[in-house]
């Protein structure tokens, strides 16, 4: 039977806590057809910028469009890979260096689908979702990031 999926909120206010990640892993213990999980965690890096070191990134998004686009990406990835589960979380607001700002989690019967899907998801999220990060540098300067 075709599974019906609805757009889910992917946004989390502030950093994604390690507890949330642990709980998300634990939630899958009842799904015994899963043989492999793949997880990507994006962490805010203390880059050296002109005038100082990055202390935090403040994320903003065009939320409605980002959720529509995330749904479209999710559907395409489910279509392409035999996945059991897929979860995407992205921070909004301030995330300090060393904290987690992106959590992508895929599960499948065999590892390859989960690994490949996770990698493709991360690439598409960074390239296609209307989300912006502004780096806060220690002298109170602000620098807009740009994904390459």
């Amino acid at each position: 039977m075709e599974k019906h999926r609805k757009p889910k909120n992917i946004f989390v206010e502030g950093p994604i806590s390690p507890e949330k990640i642990a709980k998300s892993i634990a939630n899958h213990s009842s799904k015994t057809d899963i043989g492999g999980h793949s997880i990507f965690l994006g962490q805010v890096r203390a880059d050296e910028k002109e005038g100082g070191t990055v202390q935090a990134i403040v994320y903003t998004a065009y939320e409605d469009m980002a959720l529509e686009k995330a749904f479209e990406i999710r559907e395409a990835i489910f279509e392409k890979y035999p996945l059991t589960c897929m979860h995407i979380y992205h921070s909004l607001g301030e995330v300090k260096t060393g904290e987690i700002c992106l959590f992508v989690f895929t599960s499948s019967k065999h590892r390859k689908a989960a690994i490949d899907a996770c990698e493709e998801l991360v690439e598409r999220i960074k390239k296609e979702l209307p989300i912006w990060g502004k780096e806060l540098v220690d002298n109170e300067k602000e620098v807009w990031k740009e994904n390459t």
Binding site: G42, Y59, A61, Y62, M65, H90, C101, L102, V122, I125, K126, K127, E128, L129, P130, I131, W132, G133, W144, K145, E146, N147
Partner: peptide
């Protein structure tokens, strides 16, 4: 109509 500078999520 939205004006979208280069994305920098993740």
């Amino acid at each position: 109509v939205a004006l979208l500078p280069p994305f920098s999520g993740g």
